[in-house]
């Protein structure tokens, strides 16, 4: 019996057909990932908290810029303002780097914890990229919720603080839209950008752990004793 005829594979199906017959639809991947995030809520919150903190800091700095511009302090001493901005910029970048390290280590831990489950899924016919997909969806969910909460809290704290110092009338002068009338970034613009930054940061940090998980050999994964 000849087995591999032309594009036919061993099973009498073309490679294309085999590819189509092994799948994990995004909706199902999303459902499973959502399960993991919500069931291990404590763990997810700890991971999300690092994103929360760094996005809160980012959003606070952005709100501070808006407040400084609204009160006119930015124009009074542009040099001092620029110097302050530069300092904060580095702090934000540093914060994000620390946050990335936190996410990577939390997710690597989660890979170790889920060794057996990942091996089992592979035995049941999961491809490497299903595992990657599930981890990335999980990371983006944690990124989304962490940074949403972070952006809201960071903005609120800074708005209240600036209000207390400079008078709450400055709230009226802050450009609330995506863009300010002068074409610069507005509050919502900063808000969405911060959330997006948080999600991107979280997904990028998840890449290494996700690949680590996907590359687990099913046999090794099952052999490991608890």
């Amino acid at each position: 019996m000849t087995r591999a005829r032309g594009s036919m594979t061993a099973f009498g199906l073309t490679r294309e057909e085999i590819r189509r017959q092994i799948q994990l639809p995004w909706s199902e991947a999303f459902r499973i990932s959502w399960r993991y995030v919500t069931i291990r809520l404590g763990r997810s919150l700890v991971t999300a908290s690092t994103i929360f903190l760094s996005v809160a800091f980012l959003m606070a700095v952005c709100t501070m810029i808006l407040a400084a511009k609204a009160t006119g302090h930015a124009e009074e001493d542009p040099q001092a303002f620029a110097a302050t901005l530069a300092r904060y910029k580095w702090s934000v970048i540093l914060g994000f780097m620390i946050c990335a390290t936190g996410i990577i280590s939390a997710l690597l831990m989660s890979v170790t914890e889920r060794f057996r489950e990942i091996g089992t899924m592979k035995c049941l016919g999961a491809l490497d990229n299903f595992i990657v997909r599930m981890f990335l969806i999980e990371a983006s969910l944690m990124g989304l919720f962490g940074s949403m909460a972070g952006a809201i809290v960071g903005a609120l704290i800074m708005l209240v603080w600036a209000g207390v110092r400079e008078g709450f009338s400055l709230w009226v002068k802050v450009p609330w839209g995506i863009k300010s009338p002068t074409g610069e970034w507005g509050f919502l613009g900063y808000f969405f950008a911060s959330i997006l930054a948080g999600i991107i940061l979280s997904v990028i940090s998840a890449i290494i752990p996700a690949y680590r998980a996907a590359k687990l050999q099913a046999a090794d994964a099952l052999r490991t004793e608890i």
Binding site: T9, A10, F11, R15, R19, I22, C123, L124, L127
Partner: peptide
Amino acid sequence: QLDAYELAWLRC
């Protein structure tokens, strides 16, 4: 002779 997809198909 099987690639990753075919092995997954087989396991599944």
